[in-house]
């Protein structure tokens, strides 16, 4: 193996992998949302009446989009695993990557349980996944159990596997996430008290905090 470039930055497989990961997340979310929309669309249809041409086209579009997103997700996973097998990496880095994949799988399991456990059922609007809509008891208990057992174990093992560069990026992301949380929740709370804004939505604050955290973490790691 030879040193590949003189400008200090070699062709960056991690950046293309990062793009693949974003593609995987996008196609997986697309598949989940479109599958939910397909089920909702067809279950809302009265079976005693034939589907109109426009309805048939919409239904086929939703199902086709679901299949397309699933295909893209599978193709991306195969591509990532192929390049990961050929790349030279330290054992701890490989362990960290395995744990990242495990946490992504855990996230997918959580999303599926939430999707099935919504009181409106699997046919609920896709964005209901991120709403305060009621959740069935068994789903909430399963999600809390998963979050309190698997997540801390994966996080603990991941922190033991990562190197100092990644830890710095992660910590800086967490700091920016905390600032985002403080600004957003305080200003929203003040605005709501004055009647200028609706009451604070915990899920929205959670999502913004984690988005800022994740964006800074990835930027510091792969810039």
């Amino acid at each position: 193996m030879t040193a590949q470039a003189d400008d200090g930055i070699e062709a960056n497989p991690a950046r293309s992998r990062l793009a693949s990961v974003f593609g995987l997340v996008g196609s997986s979310l697309g598949a989940i949302f479109l599958a939910g929309a397909s089920v909702g669309f067809f279950s809302a249809h009265d079976p005693s009446r034939p589907l109109s041409t426009a309805g048939l086209l919409v239904g086929m579009g939703l199902v086709g989009g679901t299949v397309l997103c699933l295909g893209l997700a599978v193709r991306t996973v195969l591509g990532i695993s192929r390049s990961a097998r050929t790349e030279i990496v330290a054992p701890s880095v490989r362990k960290g990557r395995t744990l990242t994949v495990l946490s992504a799988l855990l996230g997918a399991v959580i999303a599926v349980i939430m999707l099935i456990g919504q009181s409106q059922g699997i046919g609920a609007p896709p964005l209901a996944l991120f709403s305060d809509a009621p959740l069935q008891g068994w789903a909430a208990i399963a999600l809390i159990a998963l979050t309190c057992t698997a997540l801390p174990w994966i996080t603990w093992a991941w922190h033991r596997a990562i190197d100092e560069h990644e830890l710095d990026a992660y910590r800086e992301g967490a700091l920016y996430g905390l600032y985002a949380y403080s600004l957003l929740s305080f200003c929203w709370w003040l605005g709501a008290r004055a009647g200028l804004l609706p009451s604070v939505n915990g899920v929205a604050v959670f999502m913004v905090t984690y988005t800022v955290w994740g964006a800074v973490w990835l930027w510091k790691r792969y810039r």
């Binding site: 193996m1 040193a3 070699e10 030279i88 330290a90 960290g96 100092e164």
Partner: peptide, 29 residues
Amino acid sequence: AERNWSQAELAMRLDVSRQAVNAIETGKH
């Protein structure tokens, strides 16, 4: 470069990620 190592090879010898080696070389870390 004197040893003809890639960033990935150096990273493996140091038990860090290739991104860490790149960040140190470019002064970002």
